[in-house]
Design a protein around this nucleic acid. Structure first.
Lengths: 134, 134
DNA sequence: TATTGTTATACTCTATAACTATA
DNA sequence: TATAGTTATAGAGTATAACAATA
């Protein structure tokens, strides 16, 4: 069975997913990186900017404008750690948590619609494989 | 079963595949875009630069330095179409076909190694799903 | 007038280095 | 001296617009 390289197919699928998510994010005024940050903070285990950068695989300097924006819009809190005042402790506000939940639900719904194109057994195996490989 | 968004997982897998391919490409002195071009031409159905750009989803202007380099190195031919002298007809040289074959084989081998981490049934379903979705 | 390929330019994204304030 | 975060800068990658040569 002739097929493209995995790399080519994964890249195409990535572009397709991105195109699918873009309108959802735009509708809520959230950039891709802002969503990734909200997502990273939603777990609750990440507290500092350095930890967040490591978690989402971004440079720490890339995060700063995103955090500035999210803070201005009241979606995150960013306060000096009393125990080490070099560190900023990050947390979602209620409003941030809500935006994250809404956007995430819409994205998940759109993902499900995409997976409808697969046989049910393949669908489960695909997600399982993706969890393992990623 | 809590999992990340498909987008996040696909992006991570994409980065992983890229990191895996990078040393192979470097060893043969071929950039990612150069490989994509060789791959696009290997099928034989694509003949013009515009068609190639469309096929691989790249801007036509992005292709030009890549084609210049591949031509200088004797991996592709690029000649005006006698029937329409605006058009450049592209083709792999024997040497280009050989480089493509070698690189592709190494990439496929590495991909197989990656897929070893999956149960055989999941492996097939994963590739099948990827073909469908991408 | 429209199209293929090319060049020049501007823009975006990302990484690097230098700086501050703490420790 | 080392570290968290910030700022400024430079580099890479990409897209946009203008151009030359055909049709």
């Amino acid at each position: 069975m002739a097929r493209d390289d995995l790399g080519a197919m994964v890249a195409r699928l990535g572009r397709r997913l991105l195109a699918m998510e873009q309108p959802i994010l735009a509708r809520h005024g959230v950039s891709m990186w802002a969503y990734v940050v909200l997502n990273g903070l939603a777990g609750g285990s990440v507290r500092t900017q350095a930890a967040l950068a490591a978690r989402i695989g971004a440079d720490k300097t890339r995060l700063i404008p995103v955090l500035d924006d999210l803070q201005e819009r009241g979606l995150i809190e960013r306060e000096p750690d009393p125990a080490d005042r070099r560190v900023r402790l990050l947390a979602l506000t209620d409003s941030g948590r809500e935006v994250h939940r809404v956007v995430r639900d819409e994205i998940r719904t759109a993902e499900e619609a995409l997976l409808e194109g697969l046989a049910p057994a393949d669908r489960e195996a695909f997600v399982r494989a993706l969890v393992t490989l990623s």
